[in-house]
Amino acid sequence: MSDPIEGIWDCVTVASFGTQESVFTIVRDGDTFSGTNIADVGELEVQDGRIEGHRLTWKMPTTKPMKMTLVGKAIVNDGKLEGVVMLGAFGKATMSGVKRG
């Protein structure tokens, strides 16, 4: 049986200033994970990824449009990901995704 969390996720993030599609890759290591989130604005590296049951939390440093650390929280259930990303001074965005495969 495959891991319900690890894998490649096709995601959409919706913020007040627009919508962005991305490919979120999760590489699990017990109750932690690493990976990347790749979108039109570039590739963001996952840091401090944690897994508690079906709940995920992570950080992603970015320099676009300014230097800040994005903070994500999501729940994974039946091949779907639903969560929020805190965008520093830009508020928050909703994030949803579907697991490939």
Rank of each mutant, 00 (worst) to 15 (best):
R55A: 11
G83S: 03
D40Q: 14
F24K: 01
G88A: 09
T57V: 13
K67A: 10
K59G: 00
V71P: 00
D78V: 10
I51R: 01
F33T: 02
G49R: 00
V14M: 12
G101H: 12
A93N: 02
V27H: 13
A39H: 05
C11D: 04
A93H: 06
F17C: 03
K64D: 06
P4F: 07
K80R: 14
I5D: 02
I5M: 03
K92D: 08
P65V: 01
K73D: 05
I5S: 00
G79S: 09
T25C: 05
T69E: 12
M60N: 09
T63S: 09
R100M: 08
D40H: 09
G49V: 00
G18A: 13
S34V: 09
W58K: 03
M1V: 14
I75R: 11
E45G: 05
V85W: 02
M1F: 14
L70V: 10
T36W: 01
K99W: 03
Q20L: 06
I26C: 01
G72S: 06
V76N: 01
W58A: 03
N77S: 15
K92T: 04
T32S: 13
G72F: 03
E45A: 08
R55I: 12
V84T: 12
R50K: 15
D31M: 08
T36P: 12
R100W: 08
Q47G: 01
D10R: 07
G91M: 04
T25K: 11
F90G: 03
M95S: 03
L70E: 04
F17L: 02
W9G: 00
S16F: 05
G72Q: 06
A93Y: 04
I75V: 15
V46I: 06
P65D: 04
G79M: 06
G88I: 02
G88L: 02
K67P: 08
T57S: 15
A89C: 10
N37E: 14
D31N: 14
P61A: 04
V12S: 05
L44G: 07
S16E: 10
L81D: 01
D40T: 08
T69C: 06
H54D: 15
E6P: 04
R50L: 12
P61R: 07
F24P: 00
Q47V: 08
M86F: 15
